[in-house]
Simulated assay, not measured.
Amino acid sequence: MLSLLSKSSAFFTKRPLLSNVISTGFLFGSGDFLAQSFFSPEEKYDIYRTLRAVSYGSIVFAPIGFRWYKLLGSIQFPARSFKSDRAKVTLNTVARVAVDQLVFAPFIGIPLYYTCMALFERKEHPFEEVTSKLNKHWAPTLWSNWSIWPVFQFFNFYLVPLHLRLLMVNLFSIGWNCYLSYRLNIKHAPLLASEQDVDPENQVML
């Protein structure tokens, strides 16, 4: 096991972009596989849906995520601003988490996912499909994101070397990708009762 981790770390160090393209595509596909297996087991498995998830992870998210984490790694306050190394690391980490969660998540990561996945479906009216998915899913997904990711990202930025941070995100994201895939493909019942639409005149759940 230690040997495997050592080889993986060496590969991510030597070929960071390629390794992230491969791992991100695989893990997005794994998330969709779990979503189909656990949340719609009665339906026929949709291999094209999984391939869309793999394509998004490899072609879109991996290169963007790779560069984004390099950018976050460059965010740091001047060394003279701190009395100790621990204070420096802690405040730099807080700043990186804040930028990640207040900039990337709401304005890049979540909109990009729903936009690309809607376009990958090649519907007859792609603009309307993208608009519909963003209107329906952006806010609930963002609130779910903020309920789990800030804590994880703090420890990720604080403890994990730069070249392995996207891998850690992707491993943690297996469950998150499962949620995204389920949310993206939900057709009838909403994920949470609080997300149901209500007829304001009749007060009847739709």
Rank of each mutant, 00 (worst) to 15 (best):
L159D: 10
F61D: 02
A189C: 11
V89E: 12
F66S: 03
G109L: 08
F120D: 11
L164F: 02
G25P: 04
L184Y: 10
E201D: 04
L119G: 10
A193R: 15
A95H: 05
L142C: 09
V89M: 14
D100F: 03
R67K: 08
A35L: 05
D197S: 14
G31Q: 03
P63L: 01
S173N: 06
L5A: 10
K88I: 07
S132R: 14
S132C: 13
M1K: 06
V94D: 01
Y114D: 13
T24H: 08
S74V: 05
Q153G: 02
F11R: 01
S23D: 12
Y45H: 14
G25S: 10
L72G: 08
V99H: 08
L4R: 08
V204P: 00
S19A: 09
V60N: 01
R67D: 02
L164D: 00
F127K: 13
L167Y: 01
L166Q: 02
E121G: 13
T24F: 06
L159W: 15
S30V: 06
W146L: 15
L27W: 01
F38G: 04
P41S: 01
D46S: 09
K123Y: 09
Y113R: 02
Y69F: 15
Y69C: 07
L102I: 04
D46G: 07
F11I: 02
V54P: 02
K70G: 02
P16V: 01
V160S: 07
D100G: 09
G65N: 04
T90M: 06
R122G: 10
Y158L: 14
P111W: 10
V160Y: 09
E124C: 09
L119W: 11
K70Y: 09
G65R: 06
A53F: 02
L142S: 06
A193L: 14
V21H: 07
R96G: 05
A118T: 09
W143T: 13
S181N: 15
F154H: 05
Y158W: 15
K133H: 12
S181G: 08
L119V: 14
A10R: 10
N145K: 10
E201F: 11
D199G: 03
R52Y: 02
L162M: 11
V89G: 04
L134C: 13
S74H: 05
E195R: 03
G31T: 00
K136Y: 10
S6V: 07
D85K: 15
N20P: 05
L159R: 13
G29Y: 00
S8M: 11
Q196K: 14
N135A: 13
Y179V: 04
L184M: 13
L4N: 03
D199H: 07
S74P: 02
F38D: 08
L27V: 03
K88N: 09
R67N: 03
I174Q: 00
K70Q: 10
M168K: 01
A189H: 12
N185R: 04
R183T: 14
S81M: 14
L51H: 03
D199W: 07
K44E: 15
V198T: 12
S173Y: 00
K44N: 10
V160I: 15
T24K: 08
L166S: 04
G65P: 03
T115N: 15
Q36C: 04
R15N: 13
Y114C: 05
K133N: 12
R49N: 07
Y179L: 04
V204A: 01
P200G: 02
M205I: 14
A79G: 00
Y114G: 08
L17A: 11
P78F: 01
F154E: 08
W149Y: 09
V103W: 12
